[in-house]
Design a binder for these strands. Structure first.
Length: 738
RNA sequence: GCUGCUGUAGCUCAGUCGGUAGAGCGCGUCCUUGGUAAGGACGAGGUCCUGGGUUCAAAUCCCAGCAGCAGCUCCA
């Protein structure tokens, strides 16, 4: 016998071998009909799955009302979509088909590509399956038999998955639905008829097992609901959310633009957007000075040597704009040095290198046709010899070298003597040299250097996205140099600063991510013990502040762990905004010191931090957060004066002048339109306050105040309105903002 | 970078079978002078993304490139 503890607290006994369906039937016919799946000890299982034979277990029947049931439904719908695809595109191979927040997807390798035009066909086939309402039947096989079954089904990706990851299990589970059998953990809905509404949404490429070196499959996205009404509500919600898109609003509200001639990923801040940015910058700058920061300015470029020392230039080689060398040969030799130093590399790195060389028009002609890595390196070597000869570079050490590493070193030595510059991808090396410019005592620490520093990174074309992913951006950056004793309090102060900014702006919907290193990856620099210390102190600080957070291995910067504040945009994509990063590495690389109380030299610790992340991304997120309707203190246009007719233009201008004298951002709409039209336009432009002036106001010396959010608020003396709006601005009120 | 889709007026988009280009909004001029989300009339505005190809003829069909969008990979 098994004891099942139901959600209402009662305990139900059932014989060994009972199924959730039988329990549901025992409770009530209606419940049994409504049942989708069951939850046993927190785990969701099929209705037909046998319950544990004995002991006490929590037990719950899931119905449509349960969010968990929707996931089950969607996962089943993914199977149905795959089944439809198998019918329409015989020979398709299936990969993974999970459910997610949005719906579900299935990764498919089909002999003919699936196109958007095919969606109606797929949906029609899915409808046939749903209408037949066949059950999902689970069965298990010993792993070797299961592997053979997948092979029989001509599903090599499933076989590969078993070999890679599932070998450790003694048995594998499958689900059969009609002619369709799929390796799957489950659980599933009882039968296909439970799906009330579904839609195939989109198709995109996705790498097998999320690995860019593996083949790319077609990821077919869809969603499903219990009712048609829910589906329609979802689709409507998506449409509404898209109206908040900062790319759409940025254009309508004239906040920013991007010009092909200037370059993709390079933001042109228009006057209205620049106004908002300026206010944000002043806001944070004032706050930083209060908190003991020292503002600095540094140039947009720096010597390559600087970025070789910091590690940024070699490490992010292909995510940077090309280096600027005076000597023409140097750029090419630099690329060759890069390739020789890489040695034997994987396909992905090789591919990136080829693209890089191709852009520079300097790929040796035979290079791509050669398959062996050593032959490729040899070819680069031959190419270098030609370059050295043709460009008359005298480099005896290169000729003396006996292997590619030595050759790379010889080239590097020469390159380091060449004057070269890099558009700065990071501000830290510049700030480090301000730190180094004078001897530092422990009494001076922490040194906090802050700058709105503009950096340039050559992001991949597919990544560029409005203001949220760009190639030139300004970080509200600062670097803190401190003793290790000061790390925790500085970390804490910085997290509090981020929270202060987020609170001021009403950004409450964020999550906190601790980015730690992935122990299995070689991309990190620095000693393991430094990493351990850094990761531990980060987590201690966050815990101490009582924050909810997730630890994510592999999310660290290459020089240290970090804490990120991540927000979602209007279509649910996550973006990193504020970040606080701990760094034991750069102080070593740049040999930073301070003199301690013991009169000996010590190494400081660094914190990199940017509460906004970048002005561009932050602005993009803020536009979406406020749906373009900025609170009064941020609004590019705070007040618009609307005259009832031409006759009151003079009075309107008088009011305008008075408000401007108080520093308010005010304009006047004195055109000969009707007042309704002017109001409509001001509303669409998201102006917080409209001042309607006509005969009554002119003779009384008042303004009729209309708030964007609250409508007509009646006539007020000008001074009273000014006092009200000034208070709203100084308190940085969010009221009225959406 | 990869897969797919898209590219027509300032914006949003239509454009049939391949036959010299359309709407709404916006903009300009004039009329209108009004009271809390659209007053009216007239008008200007086009490298149909770029470059090739097919054709008597290309916005339309084909190829390449560029840009944007969605997803994947990447992200100091």
């Amino acid at each position: 016998m098994v004891q099942l503890k139901l959600p209402d607290g009662s305990v139900k006994e059932a014989p060994a071998g009972a199924t959730p369906r039988q329990i549901a039937e025992g409770i009530g016919k209606r419940l049994a009909q409504a049942a989708i799946a069951a939850k046993v000890d927190g785990e969701i299982v099929d209705l037909n799955r046998e319950l544990p034979a004995d002991g006490e277990h929590s037990f719950q029947i899931l119905t449509e009302k349960d969010p968990d049931a929707l996931d089950v439904l969607r996962h089943s719908c993914a199977h149905i979509m795959a089944r439809a695809v198998m019918r329409l595109y015989p020979g398709s191979q299936l990969a993974f088909g999970p459910a997610g927040d949005f719906g579900f997807y299935y990764d498919i390798e089909s002999p003919t590509p699936i196109r958007e035009d095919d969606f109606p066909k797929i949906e029609a086939e899915m409808k046939k399956i749903v209408d037949k309402a066949e059950p999902f039947e689970r069965f298990e096989r010993p792993t070797s038999e299961g592997r053979a079954l997948c092979a029989d089904l001509k599903q090599p990706l499933k076989v590969e998955h078993i070999d890679d990851d599932l070998k450790k299990y003694p048995t594998l589970s499958f689900y059969r639905q009609g002619e369709f059998i799929d390796l799957c953990r489950g659980p599933h809905i009882p039968d296909a008829g439970r799906i009330g509404a579904f839609k195939v949404l989109s198709i995109a490429g996705a790498y097998w097992k999320n690995d860019a070196t593996r083949p790319q499959l077609q990821r077919l996205y869809g969603t499903a609901f219990f009712t048609q009404k829910d589906l329609e509500a979802y689709l409507h919600r998506i449409e509404e959310a898209k109206k908040r898109d900062h790319r759409v609003l940025g254009k309508h509200l004239k906040l920013f633009t991007i010009s092909q001639m200037v370059g993709s990923g390079l933001i042109l801040w228009m006057p209205r957007g620049a106004t908002v940015r300026g206010i944000l910058e002043t806001f944070i700058k004032d706050e930083l000075v209060k908190r003991g920061y020292s503002p600095v300015y540094t140039p947009h470029i720096g010597r390559l040597e600087l970025y070789r020392t910091s590690g940024h230039f070699p490490y992010y080689r292909d995510a940077q704009f090309p280096p600027m060398y005076h000597r023409p040969a140097a750029g090419t030799l630099d690329l060759c040095q890069y390739r020789l130093a890489m040695g034997e590399i994987d396909d992905k790195r090789e591919h990136e290198y080829i693209e890089y060389m191709r852009q520079a028009h300097m790929l040796p002609p035979q290079y791509t046709r050669e398959t062996s890595q050593s032959a490729k390196l040899e070819m680069i070597h031959e190419f270098v010899l030609v370059l050295l000869r043709d460009l008359q570079v005298d480099l005896p050490e290169y000729h003396k070298a006996t292997n590619h590493m030595e050759r790379a070193d010889a080239l590097l030595k020469w390159l380091m003597e060449q004057e070269g510059f890099l558009l700065k991808p990071m501000n830290c090396p510049h700030h480090i040299h301000i730190y180094k410019a004078e001897p530092r005592s422990y009494r001076d620490l922490p040194v906090r250097l802050a700058e709105f520093g503009t950096v340039y990174r050559y992001e991949q074309t597919g990544e560029l996205n409005g203001m949220t992913r760009v190639r030139g951006f300004t970080q509200d950056d600062a670097h803190l140099f401190m003793t290790s004793d000061q790390v925790e309090s500085e970390m804490k102060a910085n997290i509090e600063l981020v929270l202060f900014i987020f609170n001021t702006l009403g950004l409450n919907d964020y999550r906190v991510r601790l980015g730690f290193r992935d122990p299995g990856s070689g991309k990190y620099v620095g000693a393991a013990e430094d990493w351990d210390t850094a990761e531990k102190s980060l987590e201690a600080v966050v815990k101490g502040l009582g924050m909810n957070y997730t630890v994510e291995p592999g999310e660290a910067a290459f020089y240290g762990p970090k804490i990120d504040f991540v927000v979602k945009d209007c279509i649910g994509r996550e973006w990193q905004l504020g970040t606080v990063q701990l760094d034991y590495n750069l102080p070593k690389r740049f040999d930073l010191e301070y003199i301690g109380a013991d009169n000996a030299a010590h190494r400081p610790v660094m914190i990199h931090r940017a509460p906004f992340g970048s002005m561009e991304r932050f602005m993009g997120i803020l536009i979406e957060h406020f749906a373009g309707a900025f609170p009064t203190w941020l609004a590019p246009e705070q007040v618009r004066i609307l005259t009832v007719s031409d006759k009151f233009k003079e009075y309107g201008e008088k009011v305008e002048t008075q408000l401007k004298a108080r520093g308010l951002r005010v304009t006047g709409d004195y055109r000969s339109d009707k007042i309704g039209a002017k109001i409509r336009e001001a509303q669409l432009d998201k102006v917080p306050y409209m001042l309607v002036v006509g005969d009554k106001e002119q003779s009384a010396g008042t303004v009729a105040v209309r708030s964007r959010t609250e409508g007509d608020r009646g006539a007020k003396p000008i001074a009273e309105f000014v006092e009200m709006i000034e208070r709203e601005v100084s308190e940085r009120k969010l009221a009225g903002a959406i």
